[in-house]
Design a protein around this nucleic acid. Structure first.
Length: 792
DNA sequence: CAGTGAGCGAGCTTCCGCTTGACTT
């Protein structure tokens, strides 16, 4: 039995450290927190100084009992959880739960997993810092009180099973308010002048722009007309050096942003892939808010840069964190070995690793140097001057390996005043020949919708949430139905282009698509409804500064300057009063809105949130005739739907004809427009308007789909036509009635017997359960029973 | 992947932050 038991939070970390410490140390992991508040309402005794009731959750029982046994036999137990509020609390929970003895327990901390750092930590043990533990308790209790008192108010006043919390409710609020800004926004048009010049003698052309824009078309037209007769000359020429510096190495949040922009990963995907890289020992810990690199890492990076690119590409840099509330228990995210430019693994792992490698290496490289040339061009008939710029890279520096992208870059801008544009050699007062000039109508743009990653960025700026919770928070607000991440089509917009052709100004109207979105966060009606309710009744809690305010108080507790139960008391009393007042006085929220009167029947038309989501209703409940209902579609919201759009919803489903003696119906479902025929569904091809589908179209779509399905089938079993081998998205699998059966690796498809199918289907209890659930929901749907159980 | 949308009411839901598996048509 080892003399020393050292406990860290992560098993991968434990493995590394064990290698550094040798035989006298057994290094184990707690797998994060080992205790949590009980799930019931009596977890916190408010009357009794917020005393907490903790339990070891079932999935942690095994870990705890093992640690307990090992701790009993160890001479000394070293608590080496992270050096932050949560880490200190983990040590305390371990101390309590494992019944450790004060004189046999030592608390140590380190910020980097290197041998010297750990040896140094062991030389400097300390005691558990109870101020820090109290700060964590205050945080934990406050979050529980907020979440478990606010959520039930929503169940009562809005809809069951909803949730609210210090973090998620602010995340939803950001998205709701951004959507409103976009709705409110009106685009303003202006005309931008762009010209092409040549210095003459067939030398190359270059582009120049007018810095100011014209709001009126007539003014732009006048400028073009004036330019026809004008002479042009270089009025000034300026050369200026410029520099660009590399970005800091990745934190969780910046990694999520870059992986989103450059690799199109969701934040959850980024974290999954990073976790695999971490477990394989390729990168340092991926949940961090620190931009700091260890001294050993800086040296390793130096060596790699000097070897690969030369001395002049190296520049040592130390970065400071900008984000509020950073706790910096770890290093920045970096490769463990800078000499590994890539790693083995699936394509996602390789791409993410290379991104991390480049960013970390670049962070220790020298600036890129540019020379920027600006030429002003006079127009003899006007006071304004055109401007041409060119940029030449003199030294690439860190750009040799890494270029950070920006959010704007992914927008569909058709203006390309890019960086590495060259100007031909020019002299002051040189006259220029105009080759072309146009004025293009451009529109101002509304604020950008959030992506998952830009929402994380915003939350981090506000100090809300932690690296370990960004991805789960983004998932929660989607799972609750408050927001959706989706693509939406843009709409067509016309714009005017004026051009000089044969010494005349010619006008042309063009069309472009605007407002198309890919994988952006949109609020749902229920999200808007809940947000407005919370803003009205609990303004303080979902204020953007609430977290910052309480964090300041947690810090004071951690410093020993404030008593944690006093802080909670000051918060809880008014908060709880607000809960009671709201329960008693607030109206039920439904967001009902009157749209007008149906011209055909004279009945009122309204929209509201119903039991199954947002709906339009014609007629009222207390009318003799039953009201008619229709669900809103993707992209439509109670707040913004117009009367005409609402009435259009009643035009579908629509019968379009007969095929094989059965009716074909066109409707719009959750996944877009489809044709229903017999009991099967057929999606409409993208871009086809469901209102325009003819009988012929529908028959063709059905036949094409059937043909495609036939092509997917590789083999059918004679014994049972419900069993067949199909080509799926990830290779062949067996469709066995309602159950999908996996084919074991290395199996020859042609040699599978029906007995194999039965055997494999039987051996997969989860697949069977799923199939049963599928069958049950299908039956329920046909029986028209209504269950309040949510799907999944 | 439709349509559905009352009212009654038992018993349920819910927070944030620290971890990793098990999961994947």
């Amino acid at each position: 039995m080892a003399k020393n038991l050292l406990i860290v939070e992560s098993p991968a970390k434990a493995k590394t450290i064990e290698g550094y410490l040798g035989k006298d140390f057994l290094v184990k992991s707690s797998y994060g927190h080992i205790r949590d508040l009980v799930k019931t309402d009596d977890a916190i005794d408010i009357e009794n100084n917020f005393e907490q009731k903790y339990e070891v959750p079932s999935d942690k029982k095994a870990v705890v009992s093992e640690l307990k046994k090992l701790a009993k036999n160890a001479e000394t137990v070293w608590l080496a959880s992270d050096e932050d509020r949560e880490g200190e609390a983990i040590s305390w929970h371990l101390f309590e739960t494992l019944s450790l003895k004060d004189d046999k327990t030592k608390r140590i901390v380190f910020h980097e997993i290197t041998k010297p750092a750990i040896m140094r930590a062991i030389e400097e043990p300390r005691k558990i810092d109870y101020n820090l533990v109290n700060a964590q308790q205050a945080r934990r209790v406050l979050d529980r009180l907020v979440g478990f008192e606010l959520s039930p108010v929503l169940w009562k006043k809005v809809k069951p099973s909803l949730s609210a919390g210090r973090v998620q409710s602010v995340a939803v609020r950001l998205i709701v308010e951004r959507e409103r800004e976009i709705n409110k926004f009106t685009a303003e048009a202006s005309f931008k002048i762009v010209a092409q010049f040549t210095p003459g003698n067939g030398r190359e052309q270059f582009k120049a722009e007018l810095p100011q824009r014209f709001e009126q078309k007539s003014d732009a037209e006048t400028f073009l007309r004036d330019s026809i007769q004008a002479s042009f000359a270089v009025s000034s020429l300026e050369k200026r050096p410029g520099k660009r510096s590399p970005a800091a190495p990745f934190t969780t949040s910046t990694l999520q942003q870059e992986a989103s922009r450059k690799l199109s990963f969701s934040v959850a995907r980024t974290m999954q892939v990073a976790q695999r890289l971490y477990e394989a020992g390729h990168i340092t810990y991926m949940r961090t808010d620190s931009v700091n690199l260890s001294d050993t890492a800086i040296q390793a990076a130096q060596q790699e840069i000097v070897n690969a690119y030369g001395e002049n590409y190296y520049k040592q840099r130390r970065y400071k964190t900008k984000s509020a509330g950073a706790q910096e228990a770890h290093e920045a995210i970096r490769p463990t070995y800078f000499s590994h430019h890539t790693v083995e693994g699936d394509p996602a792992e390789r791409r993410l690793y290379e991104l991390i490698w480049k960013r970390a290496i670049a962070s220790q490289m020298s600036e890129a140097e540019f020379e920027k040339t600006t030429a002003k061009i006079s127009v003899s008939t006007r006071r304004e001057e055109l401007v041409a710029t060119g940029e030449v890279m003199r030294f690439d520096g860190f750009l040799k390996v890494y270029m950070e992208s920006t959010d704007e870059e992914s927008d569909n801008t058709n203006e390309q005043n890019g960086d590495n544009t060259l100007l031909p050699p020019l002299n002051k007062d040189q006259s220029l020949t105009l080759k072309a000039m146009n004025a293009t109508e451009r529109f101002s743009r509304p604020p950008a919708r959030y992506t998952e990653a830009s929402l994380v960025k915003k939350l981090e700026e506000l100090g809300i949430g932690r690296p370990s919770t960004y991805a789960p928070t983004i998932s929660t607000i989607q799972n609750r139905g408050y927001v959706v991440k989706e693509d939406r089509d843009g709409r067509e917009r016309q714009f005017v282009v004026l051009q000089i052709v044969d010494n005349k100004v010619v006008e042309e109207t063009k069309t472009e698509t605007t407002g198309a979105e890919r994988a952006k966060m949109f609020p749902t009606d229920i999200g808007v409804l809940v947000n407005d309710f919370l803003v009205e009744h609990f303004h303080d809690i979902i204020d953007y500064n609430f977290t910052a305010k309480v964090e300041k108080e947690f810090d004071e507790i951690a410093q020993g300057g404030k008593e944690w139960t006093m802080m909670l008391k000051d918060f809880y009393e008014p908060f709880h009063q607000g809960i009671q007042d709201t329960l008693e006085h607030a109206d039920r929220a439904s967001h009902e809105r009157q749209l007008g009167t149906d011209p055909a029947t004279g009945k009122p038309v309204s929209v509201r949130v119903g039991r199954f989501g947002p709906l339009v209703q014609i007629g009222s409940a207390d009318d003799e005739e039953k009201p008619r209902f229709a669900s809103l579609r993707k992209g439509q919201m109670i707040e913004t739907i117009t009367f005409d759009e609402a009435m259009d919803l009643f035009k579908l489903p629509k019968k379009v004809g007969l095929f094989e003696d059965k009716e074909m119906t066109v409707a719009i479902g959750r996944f877009g427009p489809y044709i229903r025929h017999a009991s099967a569904f057929y999606s409409l091809p993208k871009g086809m308007d469901p209102m325009d589908v003819t009988e012929q179209d529908a028959i063709q779509i059905i036949q094409e789909k059937r043909q495609k399905d036939r092509e997917k089938v590789i083999r059918v079993f004679e014994e049972n036509p419900d069993a067949q081998i199909e080509n799926g998205r990830w290779g062949p699998f067996i469709r066995f009635g309602k159950q999908n059966v996996k084919i074991p690796k290395g199996t020859d498809i042609n040699k599978i017997t029906y007995e194999d199918v039965l055997k494999w289907a039987e051996a997969d209890p989860k697949g069977k359960a799923k199939a049963a659930a599928k069958a049950a929901t299908a039956k329920k749907a046909t029986k028209k029973t209504t269950s309040t159980k949510s799907k999944k």
